[in-house]
Design a protein around this nucleic acid. Structure first.
Lengths: 135, 135
DNA sequence: TCATTCTGTAACATGTGTTGTTACAGTAAA
DNA sequence: TTTACTGTAACAACACATGTTACAGAATGA
């Protein structure tokens, strides 16, 4: 439903993978993405809830991947960030009209199929594949 | 980049197909969708620019399909409504960072592939197929 | 020709959702 | 106990889709 968040989330995860072994702070990550550190912490809050990231509090704390990058499909990340289907919004049509009465059912079928196609494509790529592109 | 517009556009086109042969007014169409007639006229302005709809001005005027429903793929409609990729927004990252410097290129590749998968899925269905579901 | 009934569009209001920012409590390390 | 982090709430700012009003232009028919 949103969008820019996905770019942010992938950026975070890519950094964690390329700097594997180090604890990265929200300030450092924010500097690479060029956003406010709080945006990073909030996004990581979500990623952590899904098990993609682990955090360490206190001085010297920071973030690292919660599971191997080879086990994180981009479709998993996508779903974690977009709780709602990209296509999914419809109107509140007139139930007295033949078309209006049924359209949302048919739209939902269509949206679901489209969303699945998108998810399937992104499921082909893992975070490891993605991070490998950076050199 | 939007979303609800796609539902509106498909609703309009479905109505025009199911009431083929009649000129439908923006008021009638708006009544089925349950939106303001101006919203319909604006959306049709776009659909007309893409050749999907023809209009007749003046008293007794209205709208009809600009080409056979069998020649309108839902992916065509989708593209006409969403001039921008659904996924496509990225950040403005730090060029001094190895990841930041390259991420937008890789994100764009990813987004394009995902978008193509979605388009391909919707290309399987024509307006005729879709409108047939209503009975 | 004139009233009527449409479309076409501009202009503006409204609402909603995302993103940005400040502030501060909690935690761990030295 | 100071320092440097995370975690989160609260609020501000902004972007964007959608809703609405208003009115000019066009076709029809009396």
């Amino acid at each position: 439903m949103n969008n820019g968040r996905f770019a942010t989330a992938l950026h975070i995860l890519t950094l964690l993978e390329t700097k594997k072994g180090e604890l990265l702070s929200s300030g450092f990550i924010a500097g690479s993405i060029n956003v406010n550190p709080v945006v990073v912490r909030k996004e990581i809050g979500n990623l952590r809830a899904h098990g993609f990231v682990e955090s360490k509090e206190g001085k010297g704390g920071g973030y690292l991947l919660g599971k191997p990058a080879s086990q994180i499909r981009l479709s998993d990340v996508y779903r974690a960030v977009n709780d709602v289907q990209l296509l999914g919004r419809s109107n509140d049509p007139n139930p007295d009209c033949l078309v209006g009465k049924q359209i949302n059912v048919h739209l939902n079928d269509l949206f679901r199929a489209a969303d699945e196609a998108l998810i399937k494509q992104m499921g082909k790529i893992t975070l490891r594949d993605f991070a490998k592109k950076f050199n």
